[in-house]
Design a protein around this nucleic acid. Structure first.
Lengths: 221, 221
DNA sequence: TCCTGCCTTAACCTTCCATTAACCCCGACC
DNA sequence: GGTCGGGGTTAATGGAAGGTTAAGGCAGGA
């Protein structure tokens, strides 16, 4: 049986959703503000979380960012009355998996919750190292919720480092995995690493890309 | 956090396992056939691999044999519906570390995976001597919880000493293991040992690196 | 065609590290 | 007491590894 968490401050709407889910034999906890929701998330294990953006105390985007930072990758469906593109993007950047604009049909909510709760197999497409998230499928990466501007090669390097984290990757292996059998015969890797660092370790955030002289490079705290 | 690979062609079972592991905050990649699995094994670093015997394209035993031949000694748990002794033996011959007969309890799978990931089959990746910890995989060492700043050679020397601890290592063997066939023709070892001691035996902590005059060096309390 | 983004290259600078040789200490032995 | 050898300590050196910057080339889109 599905076990969901709804974080929503509109008590009427919340009651409606919880009741409806109950008819479908779906269990659903409820929190009315962001802080209470986050506490429940950390205490229990849910198959999916339905999260309103406009919340008292801690808004939905921050709740999502916080739980991802804590290493919890339960699927999140964002709920909002505003349907602006900006909000949609913000939602995805903070780590949401799906998005629903109010008003919505109950059936749609249920369908999406079930779909998200189910597809969670296959290969890991989301790597996380500290507050750095790498979405392999979408080819996007975020540090502290901020999107990084990465060239294809830089992204590939980051992906390799993330998959091996926290172990270091030798220069040779890194080149093999990024370029395959005909690597460039110059210091191209150094340049890419330099550019990658400018993105990942910018803004005074603690450096995540470390070089172990004579050993290789490691992505870790 | 554990990082596992599951190679299993039954997609329902795979999804179940991946989901379950996720609940335990264990990361798990998935491949549905032997060839894909082997590719992932060579590309990434896992703490353990859960491997079905009956697989399309390349069966589990062959996958295991191939990865061992490639020098990868990640622990392997074999999964099979058949519980005949013959299969069991075949599994161990091809280099598996553990064996699980379907159907099995999830708890058991997790327990075994965690156990194996800890004590790595071939090479031990985490050494401990008194309050000194050496993480070979991450190339990190800690004394009393404090990280040590070691050059590659110093780390290598420490690793050798730790692997032999508490037995002493002769000067000759130490040089052989660190430098191979062309050792430096000076007192380089002495200097490295000196620097190593400055890190390991600093801060008034009781000395762990001992000199046995005319015998060699030992790492012990 | 030009523009733009991206990769590669090369040059140059900085930091790190292994090696070396010199010197010191101390106990054993003559 | 002198000297010899094993071991410990120190600082200088050169070279390798890594970091930084700018310029050229190539491809795809406008």
């Amino acid at each position: 049986m599905l076990n969901l968490l709804l974080i929503e401050d509109d008590l009427d709407l919340a009651a409606t959703i919880v009741d409806y889910l109950e008819l479908e034999a779906i269990n659903c906890d409820h929190a009315a503000n962001g802080v209470a929701g986050l506490a429940l998330i950390q205490k229990h294990t849910y198959q999916a979380i339905i999260l309103d953006i406009n919340l008292p105390r801690l808004n939905g985007l921050d709740v999502c960012t916080a739980m991802r930072a804590a290493g919890i990758d339960t699927p999140v469906i964002m709920l909002t009355a505003r349907d602006s593109l900006a909000n949609k993007l913000e939602g995805f950047e903070s780590g949401a998996d799906d998005y629903l604009v109010k008003p919505f049909a109950m059936e749609e909510l249920i369908a999406r919750a079930q779909a998200l709760a189910k597809r969670r197999s296959g290969q890991v497409e989301r790597l996380q190292v500290a507050d750095l998230r790498v979405d392999v499928r979408e080819k996007k990466a975020f540090r502290q919720g901020r999107p990084l501007k990465l060239s294809p090669t830089a992204f590939r390097i980051l992906e390799v480092l993330a998959r091996h984290s926290p172990a270091p990757v030798s220069r040779e292996l890194l080149m093999q995995l990024v370029w395959g059998d005909d690597p460039p015969d110059s210091n191209s890797l150094k340049v890419h690493l330099f550019n990658l660092r400018k993105q990942v370790d910018a803004d005074g955030a603690p450096a995540l890309i470390h070089t172990l002289s004579g050993v290789g490079f490691a992505l870790r705290e």
